[in-house]
Simulated assay, not measured.
Amino acid sequence: MTDTIRPGEIMYDAEGQQIHIHGGSILAVDGEYYWYGEDKGQSTPATGRWHSGVRAYRSPDLVNWTDLGSILPAESSDPDSPLHPQTMMDRPHIVRHPASGKFVCWMKVMHADGRQRSWVYQADRFEGPYSLVRPGFEPLGMSAGDFDLVIDSETGRGYYYFERVHSELICADLTDDFTDVTGTYSTHFPHPNPPFVREAPAYFRHDGRHYLITSGTSWYFPNRSEIAVADDYHGPWTVLGDPHRNDPSGTSFHSQISSVFTLEDGRHIALADRWLPDMADDMIYRAWRATEAQFTGGRPDPDIDAIVQAGAPDTSRARHVWLEIRFDNGRPFIDWQDAWRP
């Protein structure tokens, strides 16, 4: 048993096994916490596995986790499935419909044709089984990348924030059953090219205001986060800058935030992945410049290009960086803590 979160250290479950889920989120259900994400336990260059399905854990206190196994298992026999181990499935997000009680899971898949599509599953229980209700599609006709799902607790309406790949961020209204978009949407944070394009949107609400944390677009290399605030889901958004005020590396403590979980008392936890735990700062800085050069015709960096061309890194070695979002004079900040209690 433990009572603390130690950012950047390996996390273990109640049986002493290392937790390998990433691109994760937490959902509170009937007084218990459920943490889920991509199972990266076997995602090494040698195996060629992008993922091993969607895995989940349950906890009464956010620090001691019981393994529930795969809630959307890998489908090794179906190469066309988004759950095939070699399919580039990322960042599953699950919400519970307030009226029907059904659990709706969206995931993004990077397809071989270069387009990114959304797949939607549904279940009566969080643990599943889940059934495919909407196969790979492009919401609003757009190639949809990293995303977050948001349900308004007062109105029951749903919103889908996603990166329109290498372009801008979109906020789209969900249909009443949360399995599609209605056609109503707004556009935000336009940029001409990576690494400036915003991805990995992570939404939370505090004192009635809406907040979005996003990262730049630089492959698995970490970069500086950016937080924005608005008075409506559709904006307009005011950019507040990097919330990591005591991070000398300027790389969100070498991590990328995947989601924000809000506790019952109104505090917020930023869940982040440290994809490259052993990467030196100088390589990370070079990666940002190399990404910009790739899209602007600048000078390439052979060392960075070689890393990217080698394919996905050993994501089984990725670490978790969970930190509290605190407010100082009404402004959100994420400061480093070696250990803390939720």
Score class of each variant (00 low, 15 high):
Val321Ser: 00
Glu199His: 11
Phe178His: 04
Met88Pro: 00
Tyr159Ile: 03
Ala74Ser: 13
Phe196Leu: 07
Ala230Asn: 06
Gly16Leu: 10
Phe327Met: 10
Pro73Lys: 11
Tyr161Ala: 02
Ala230Thr: 08
Ser25Trp: 01
Leu149Ile: 04
Gly145Glu: 01
Arg58Thr: 06
Phe295Tyr: 06
Thr315Val: 10
Gly37Val: 00
Asp328Glu: 15
Tyr211Leu: 08
Ser118Tyr: 00
Ala230Glu: 05
Val197Phe: 03
Gln122Ala: 12
Glu38Asp: 07
Asp78Trp: 12
Ile170Phe: 06
Ala228Met: 11
Pro192Glu: 09
Ser225Glu: 12
Asp90Trp: 12
Arg299Thr: 11
Arg117Trp: 08
Tyr285Met: 11
Ala99Arg: 15
Phe147Thr: 02
Arg245Ala: 15
His22Arg: 11
Asp232Thr: 09
Pro313His: 07
Glu127Thr: 15
Val120Phe: 00
Pro190Trp: 09
Pro98Ser: 14
His93Glu: 02
Val260Trp: 00
Tyr57Met: 04
Arg198Ser: 06
Pro222His: 09
Gly266Ala: 11
Thr2Asn: 15
Gln294Asn: 02
Ala280Leu: 14
Val63Asp: 10
Arg49Glu: 07
Phe189Glu: 09
Leu174Arg: 01
Pro135Trp: 13
Ala312Thr: 05
Met283Lys: 12
His234Gln: 11
Phe253Asp: 04
Tyr159His: 07
Arg267His: 13
Ala56Met: 02
Thr262Cys: 14
Trp65Thr: 05
His320Ile: 01
Thr47Ile: 06
Ser218Arg: 08
Lys102Ala: 09
His206Trp: 12
Ala56Thr: 04
Pro7Thr: 09
Val165Met: 10
Leu62Val: 12
Leu68Ile: 01
Gly8Val: 10
Gln18Arg: 10
Ser153His: 15
Met88Tyr: 07
His191Val: 03
Cys171Arg: 02
Leu27Val: 13
Ser77Gly: 12
Glu9Ile: 05
Gly241Met: 11
Gly24Ala: 12
Arg299Tyr: 02
Val104Cys: 06
Pro79Trp: 13
Pro236Asp: 13
Tyr159Ser: 01
Tyr121Cys: 08
Ala200Glu: 09
Asp265Lys: 15
Gly16Asn: 08
Gly114His: 11
Leu132Pro: 09
Ala74Lys: 10
Asp80Asn: 14
Arg117Asp: 07
Arg96Tyr: 08
Tyr36Ala: 04
Ala172Val: 03
Met88Gln: 09
Ala99Gly: 12
Pro248Ile: 15
Ile170Thr: 07
Thr214Ile: 06
Ala306Val: 05
Arg224Lys: 14
Ala287Trp: 02
Pro73Cys: 13
Glu32Arg: 14
Leu72Glu: 00
Asp180Arg: 01
Arg289Asp: 09
Gln17Thr: 02
Tyr36Leu: 05
Thr87Met: 14
Phe327Gly: 11
Pro195Trp: 01
Ala56Phe: 05
Glu199Pro: 03
